[in-house]
């Protein structure tokens, strides 16, 4: 460590080891905010197949004709798709997203990511963009909300809108049968927003080097999908972009 980094470490220690003077409420950490949404399919295909599919999407102004769902596509191979509902919003999200930095620009060379699973789909979220994890999904369903909102719950005195992630990412595949199978056990909180993604399984938290991700260059059509983690063969989410799209479609301030 250099003298400079020593000072940073000592500063870090000083803050953490400061004896509390009062037990009043503590200011919440600040958030970086970004926006948009997500979707991708998941059985494990060859990496090249998956990557070329993404590249092909990115190279065109218009996305290829989307299958109604990743699971009902006429092609048998899995692919990254945008759900009908989200596609409607992509222009708005893209417009906003173009003024923001890309996820790979915000991350350090090496960063930690949490991998989680929903309905057979693995997704990764950089820990720096994560607000926390709730170990239960106890929601109250409110009438009049989009079907992809599972409900609301209170966490640390804050209202959290819990996204039915499977319904959001694969709306047409998400029939009553799949709905019965999906067993949500956790909520992955997105930054300090009012949004959380319901998920079934937390897989691991791992360090990733930026070079281990195939970053998408043109994210105009799918700002939420920052890239693909090569080793785990899964999408990595731009949480800020996701929040913006959820807020926009859920008509709720994120």
């Amino acid at each position: 460590m250099t003298e400079h980094s020593d000072i940073a470490v000592v500063d870090f220690f000083s803050r953490l080891l400061k004896e509390p003077q009062s037990s009043g409420p503590v200011e919440k950490p600040k958030v970086l905010v970004k926006e948009a949404e997500l979707t991708l399919s998941a059985e494990q295909v060859g990496l090249q197949q998956l990557l070329s599919k993404v590249s092909a999407f990115d190279e065109k102004d218009e996305p290829p004709k989307e299958p109604s769902s990743p699971f009902t596509s006429s092609k048998s191979k899995p692919e990254i798709i945008v759900s009908d509902s989200t596609a409607k919003e992509t222009e708005t999200a893209a417009d906003i997203g173009s003024e923001k930095s890309f996820l790979h620009q915000r991350l350090e060379g090496e960063f930690q990511a949490l991998f989680f699973k929903v309905a057979g789909l693995t997704l990764a979220v950089p820990l720096v963009e994560l607000g926390g994890i709730i170990h239960e999904v106890r929601v109250t369903h409110l009438p009049g909300q989009p079907t992809w909102i599972k409900g609301v719950m209170t966490h640390r005195d804050q209202k959290i809108n819990v996204v039915d992630t499977a319904a959001w990412v694969m709306p047409e595949k998400y029939d009553a049968n799949l709905q019965k199978q999906v067993d949500y056990r956790y909520v992955v909180l997105l930054q300090n927003s009012q949004w959380g993604l319901a998920c079934e399984e937390l897989l691991d938290a791992e360090s990733i080097n930026k070079e281990q991700v195939n970053w998408r260059v043109n994210t105009a059509k799918r700002p939420w999908l920052a890239g693909l983690v090569k080793k785990q063969m899964c999408g990595i989410l731009d949480v800020g972009a996701l929040i913006e799209q959820l807020s926009s479609q859920g008509h709720i301030a994120g």
């Binding site: 400061k18 004896e19 200011e27 950490p29 949490l114 607000g131 926390g132 994890i133 938290a205």
Partner: peptide
């Protein structure tokens, strides 16, 4: 794994 981000800013 999320504790650093969630609470690392708080004194003590």
């Amino acid at each position: 794994a999320t504790i650093d981000r969630q609470l690392g800013h708080e004194d003590g």
